[in-house]
């Protein structure tokens, strides 16, 4: 187990190094100048422009900029944002809880509904339910997120008045910044229950929107994995042994189908953590995706470089966790390792 973990950690080092170099180079290859982005239409005299460029360290060659950046990284310094003048690490950890809160709930929704839906669809193969559920999941999978979010806002927030339009909490609740997770921090506010409930309400729509595509994907993955599993000999054996449907489905079929499903969920988690740009923009959700896209549009080099690297570390951590889970679920991995011994 420990050896497996160490091996995985070592394998990630070249990935992170490659990402560090690529993020540094790519942003500089792109046209667009951070100084001009700061100045906007206004412009500046060539002297003032050079002075600003120098202050940002952008007057140096690519190589010396890269060497400075690398030595900074080895000291644990991910740089400072050109626009907000705040350390990149601090900004990352400020945005992270909002993203984790939203992604976690979205994933929870996707798993709780996606797996049963896929399971049911596979079980009811060749009946009216299968094409219906497959159609619904295909619809969810191809839903344009921007449009979907606006429709849900118009219906649930404006027409029915059930959920708030956007934001993380109603402005009347002042909550202290303890963990950054509003579902937790709200308990420290003057009106804990109401503040907690307000933050739950604010989470519902964005989590549902963000969870739509993963829900549909998980349902489809589960269906195909289950179909494959249900066609195996051991299922026939289980049936012939006289085991009940529930036992065959959950104990035998789902357990064996879970490996591709867990892998897919692991990959989705990474995408959810960073790919929520549209959802975050519509619901004014202060997450990592929006932060990174804003930095990209403004050519905020340190945020892009540092942000990509920090997010990569996060995704690598999630993937290692999924691998460990995979290791736990799939006994063949353990036997391969012991055979190697």
């Amino acid at each position: 187990m420990l050896k497996f973990l160490l091996k995985r950690l070592l394998q990630t080092l070249p990935t992170l190094l490659a990402l560090m170099i690529l993020s540094f180079l790519m942003i500089r290859i792109l046209p667009g100048d951070p100084v001009l982005s700061l100045l906007g239409e206004r412009g500046a005299t060539p002297e003032a422009y050079l002075e600003m460029q120098k202050a940002l360290g952008l007057d140096q060659s690519f190589v010396s900029q890269f060497l400075n950046y690398s030595s900074q990284l080895f000291r644990g310094d991910f740089g400072t944002s050109i626009f907000t003048k705040a350390p990149v690490v601090k900004e990352f950890f400020t945005q992270l809880p909002a993203t984790v809160e939203l992604s976690f709930l979205a994933l929870l929704l996707a798993i709780s509904f996606g797996i049963p839906l896929g399971l049911f669809s596979a079980y009811k193969k060749n009946t009216f339910w299968d094409p219906l559920l497959s159609g619904v999941s295909l619809l969810g999978y191809s839903m344009p997120i921007f449009w979907w979010a606006l429709i849900l806002i118009l219906f649930f927030s404006v027409q029915l008045g059930w959920t708030p339009v956007s934001g993380r909490i109603h402005f009347i609740y002042e909550i202290p910044q303890v963990t950054g997770f509003y579902l937790i921090d709200s308990w420290w506010s003057a009106n804990p229950f109401a503040a907690f409930w307000s933050s739950v309400q604010h989470l519902i729509l964005p989590a549902f929107v963000l969870g739509t595509i993963p829900l549909a994907s998980i349902a489809r993955f589960t269906r195909s994995a289950m179909l494959e599993s249900l066609g195996q000999d051991y299922i026939r054996t289980a049936h012939s042994k006289g085991l009940g449907v529930i036992s065959v489905l959950f104990k035998h079929a789902l357990r064996n189908a879970s490996i591709p499903i867990v892998t897919a969920i692991g990959l989705m988690t990474g995408a959810l953590l960073t790919g929520a740009v549209l959802t975050e923009s519509i619901f004014s959700w202060p997450g990592l995706g929006r932060w990174l896209v804003q930095a990209l549009l403004a050519r905020d080099y340190p945020v892009i470089q540092g942000g990509i690297l920090l997010i990569a570390i996060l995704i690598v951590a999630v993937n290692i966790f999924v691998d460990l889970l995979y290791y736990k679920i799939n006994p063949t991995l353990k036997s391969i390792e012991s055979e190697a011994h």
Binding site: L150, I153, L154, S157, V158, G161, P164, V165, S166, G167, H170, F171, S281, I282, F283, S284, P286
Partner: peptide, 16 residues
């Protein structure tokens, strides 16, 4: 902070 103009309008309507 609400970057999207359509969402700003809905927030105004809902007195947010």
């Amino acid at each position: 902070i609400t970057p999207d103009p359509s969402v700003r309008l809905q927030k105004l309507k809902k007195q947010e």
